[in-house]
């Protein structure tokens, strides 16, 4: 490809482009800096709205409280386990289900029935109470399985991947078939290696989903010891309504640095996942089309 000298309009566009993207990034950075500042600030300053981008009354109390908390580390461990197990199950399920569903009815007669079977579950739900009762009766409460099995098949991600599979050029599959490959081999040896962008995408979603999810951790655990990290962090946020909490002990109230605690928890809860994206970035850059040019 010959390199052309950029035209005037191109230069203008570039400036404009860098500016917009630069400002957007700046806003996000400032937001991040503000939150970090809050997490290191003194409670009085926070209550008085004095904190902007630098900590006021610098202290590491919030972090100290979190790090010395053995329950914090236990919850952290549970989250890590959950992500590892949950993501493995997710990816396995996604791949195993998207491939057959990517076939068309003329190739695979039951295909539509299976599709609706899965799709209905994404729309209709009995709610959390029946799920709780079920997990209770299966003795799965307080285990990591309560957190990874109900969401084992992420239907929307399956749909993403099956669409991707459909866009793959059929010739390579036909070629493999002629070499005697069966369906499993076609999936694992042919489809997967060239599906990196979509797999990286759903991998990211899966990791983020499991790491950030907090409600199910609280709901499906009958003891705080079983909480994953985000669930645990959620519970140490102090409620504002002291009247209904019945607290009249002023000593305790004075200790409540709720905002610095909240923000420290956010930072700690967020950092591992923020790291993931840059690692997965390169997979997004190569590979074949997620949506082809169809005539």
């Amino acid at each position: 490809m010959t390199k052309h000298k950029p035209s005037k309009s191109r230069i203008v566009f570039n400036v404009f482009n860098y500016a917009i993207l630069g400002i957007s990034s700046l806003i996000a950075i400032l937001l991040f800096v503000h939150i970090v500042a809050l997490s290191f600030s003194d409670n009085t300053a926070i209550v008085s709205n004095q904190v902007r981008f630098l900590p006021v009354g610098f202290n590491v109390e919030a972090y100290k409280m979190l790090f010395q908390d053995t329950r914090f580390w236990r919850a952290f461990g549970i989250s890590v386990r959950r992500v590892i197990i949950g993501v493995s199950i997710n990816m396995t399920m996604i791949v195993l289900i998207a491939y057959p569903l990517s076939k068309y009815t003329h190739q695979f007669r039951m295909r539509n029935i299976y599709m609706w079977f899965f799709f209905i579950t994404a729309l209709f739900s009995g709610g959390i109470i029946p799920m709780f009762v079920l997990l209770n009766d299966m003795s799965l409460l307080n285990t990591v399985w309560a957190l990874v099995l109900p969401t084992a098949v992420p239907v929307f991600n399956v749909i993403l991947v099956l669409n991707f599979f459909r866009q793959l050029p059929q010739e390579i599959f036909e070629a493999a078939e002629m070499d005697g490959a069966n369906e499993f081999q076609k999936l694992f040896r042919v489809a997967l290696p060239i599906s990196k962008p979509v797999l990286a995408t759903v991998l990211l979603f899966s990791i983020v989903g499991h790491w950030n999810s907090w409600f199910d951790g609280i709901l499906f655990s009958t003891t705080i010891d079983a909480y994953p990290l985000q669930s645990y962090l959620q519970t140490i946020v102090i409620r504002q309504d002291f009247a209904s909490a019945g607290i009249t002990d002023p000593d305790s109230i004075a200790q409540l640095s709720n905002i610095s605690m909240k923000t420290a928890q956010i930072i700690i809860g967020m950092v591992p996942v923020l790291m993931i994206y840059p690692l997965l970035q390169r997979y997004f850059m190569t590979g074949i089309v997620l949506g082809s040019v169809k005539e």
Binding site: M93, F117, F118, T121, F124, S125, G126, G127, I129, P130, M131, L134, L149, P150, A152, V153
Partner: peptide, 12 residues
Amino acid sequence: LMLVFAYVPMYG
């Protein structure tokens, strides 16, 4: 998995 964890709770 869906039968157990999606259709059974649909009773709710």
